[in-house]
Structure formats: structure tokens, C-alpha cells
Design a protein around this nucleic acid. Sequence first.
DNA 1: TAACCCATGTAAACGGTTACATGATTTC
DNA 2: GAAATCATGTAACCGTTTACATGGGTTA
Lengths: 204, 204
Amino acid sequence: MRQERSGKLSVNSLGFALLGLLARERLSGYDLKRRMGREVGNFWSASHGQIYPELARLEGDGMVSHELVEQRDRPDKKVYEITPAGLAALGEWVTAPVEPRVTRDELVLKAYSMWLAKPEEALALFGEHERLHEERLARYEEIGAWMEAEWGDDLDRLDSPRFASYATLMRGIMHERGYAEWCRWLAGRISARLERRERAPENG
Amino acid sequence: MRQERSGKLSVNSLGFALLGLLARERLSGYDLKRRMGREVGNFWSASHGQIYPELARLEGDGMVSHELVEQRDRPDKKVYEITPAGLAALGEWVTAPVEPRVTRDELVLKAYSMWLAKPEEALALFGEHERLHEERLARYEEIGAWMEAEWGDDLDRLDSPRFASYATLMRGIMHERGYAEWCRWLAGRISARLERRERAPENG
DNA sequence: TAACCCATGTAAACGGTTACATGATTTC
DNA sequence: GAAATCATGTAACCGTTTACATGGGTTA
């Protein structure tokens, strides 16, 4: 959602995602794309085709500024830095009310019509996603353990970006755990029914 | 995602959401909007501005047909019915592979920058969302209990739409449970830190 | 009489992905 | 010699929301 701001300035969610990364370190558009992949990728993402124009807009609104860095061996790059105005806007946005948006989930949409599918194929689909979310869960839990070991006391400081990173990672962990659990529950129901059918084919 | 189909026919996720509802009963565009609100609203939704054109497209592709029902006291309506072709397409789509899309969540995005916010305001925000998701959880659990009592044996039949509805509701329950848990965890961390600060202000 | 429900549609604007475009360097 | 990496940008397209548009009936 684009937030109304004094006069005609406005920043949308993607803008705040970029500002959230730039509040931690100076980055180029190319780096922002990659950072979003690992840092924020669990709950926000953007293609470079969206990032470059958004950076230009943020600069036009005075939220960021850039410095051209010339490189040998590599193309030159624009390194962006958040401005005091950008930092202020970001801080205000954080605690502004969020109107909940619908989470669109194609797999759940498929589950809604699964009564029309072959049970064996449905079992394969949900089993596959169970594995997928368990893999992600394991990856996130590893990162979490690393953060706890490496960042220790910072995770108790409310004004530390590390605490904030840890908080978003925790959401990722809980999300993957719940999603894997649902897939497992559903796959279990399907395979239990299939086994009963094998033992007593006249009931299928 | 729009699925490639023989020649130039194609149906996107919204189309399959509508087909999933029409596979259970004949409905008008207006009714589809409302049904989506309660039945599918937890993981898909659409405005009427999107539904009416999509129904026309589905009809053009032979997935649905409509009958004009004249009414006294009320505007006439078009009641849509799924065709055999639509039913076949829906059944095939269910077990086709899903490429996972990023879940965009503004509240988690805010958590990522919460180190810039006033702790009291952050606590209020996450506490509010904790209540919101607990309310939804309670509502879903009520519906689940009703389904178990009312639909009983159907919930074990893989070919029953009631089983499918129950499966999607279960996802809703697990989602709200996990989300509320995260909000509670985060709000708890914030308030614990605030209490310590009150007892020893020099550490704030 | 004002607000709300029923019922269907279109248009403008925004958000996001994919493809087009360029070009040097490094790795296989 | 082909493919991948670094680096930035634009254009076309699709999906979604919000606003515009109409109009009869019911409820407060």
C-alpha cells in the first residue's frame, strides 16, 4: 500500500523493504536484489525490473541518495544510502496500522478442489510440499542457531537490527513448521484412506 | 499463473478458484463474491471488478455456461454452471505442479525495521495482531467443530467436497495458530525488555 | 430520505513478472 | 567458444484494487 504523505510524497511496501535494508548498510540496486533474496526473501521479494525504478522514485522523494562508484574489471555502480528523511519515514511507518491483506496460496486453493483428483497424485503433490517446507525449516533453524551463537546479547536489544532480523526469521521458522505440519496431516489422511482401500477394495 | 492449454485457451488461479466453487453449486457472480469471502477467503479472494470479466473469459473458453434468471423485486441475474470441460480442466489442474510464490507480509516487513520504532508502539502493534489472529483462530475452530459434528463420515471420503473444505479450513487453523504464536512471542520479548528497563532505567 | 442490499458491468491506476537491451569480465 | 556474473535500465503484459456507473427494492 502506498502511504499518503505530506503533499504528494508517497512510499509503498517495496520502498520500505528497500529502506529497511539500506538502514543497515549502503547497497547498490544489484546488491539490494541479492540481499532481499536471503534477508527478507521469506516475506518479501522483488525483481530487478521493479527495484531500479523504485530506487529512482525514492531518490526523487529524498528518501535515499546515491554515489557513483567507478570500478575497473566490473561495470560502474550506484551505491545508495538512506537519508535522515528516509530513516524518519521508515521509523514512522513501522508502527503505523497494517490493514491485513489476503494471503493467496495456490496449494490451498488446489486442496479445495482435491476431491476431483486422483488420490495417488494428490498424495504425491502434498508429500512433495511437505519435504519442501521441511527443508526450508531446517535451513532457517540452522540460521537461527547461528544467530543465537554469534549475536547472543544483541538479540535482547530492541534497538538492534539483529534483534529485528531474528524476529523475522522466527516468523519464517513458525511458518514453515506450520505449513509442513499441514502437508503432513493431509498426506497422512490421504495415505490412510488409500491403505484401507487396498485392504478392502469393495469400499473404494 | 496462467496455465498453457491446447491452442490458446488458458485459465489462471482466479479462474480455478471460481471453478472450484462452481463445481459444488450453481452461483451468480454476486454469489461467487460472497462465497469466496467465507469459503475460500482464507487463502484467496477477488473483488467483483475482477470476477465479472473472469466469468466472461471462462465462458469464452467453454469452462462455464450461464442461464439468465429473471427476478421480480430484484435485478435479474446470471447463474453460472461448470461445464464438463471445466470440470476436467479443474481436476487436471489440482495435481499439476505448483511453483511456490513468495508470501508478502507487511507486518513481518515492519518487524524487520522495528529496531527504529518506539518499543511501546511496537508492543501495541503486535499485541493488536495477536488478538486479531486469535479471534480468527477461535472462529475457524468453531467452524471445524461444526463440520466434524455435522459432516462426520464425509470428512474421511477423499472424493467428497466436504473433506476438501475441511482440509482448507485446517490450513486456516494452523496458519492463525502459528501467526498468533509469533505475535505473542514477539510481544512477550518486547514487554519483558520494557519491564527490565522500568526496574533499571539506566540500562534503557 | 438516507443508507444499504441486490446485481452487473467498465476504466483507471497500481503492483509485479518477464522479456528486451547492452556490455565487459571471468570461469568452464 | 559458451555460459555465468556483475550492473543498470526500459517495455510489455498480467493480476488486482478502487472508483465510476446504473438502478430498483428494502430498511431504519
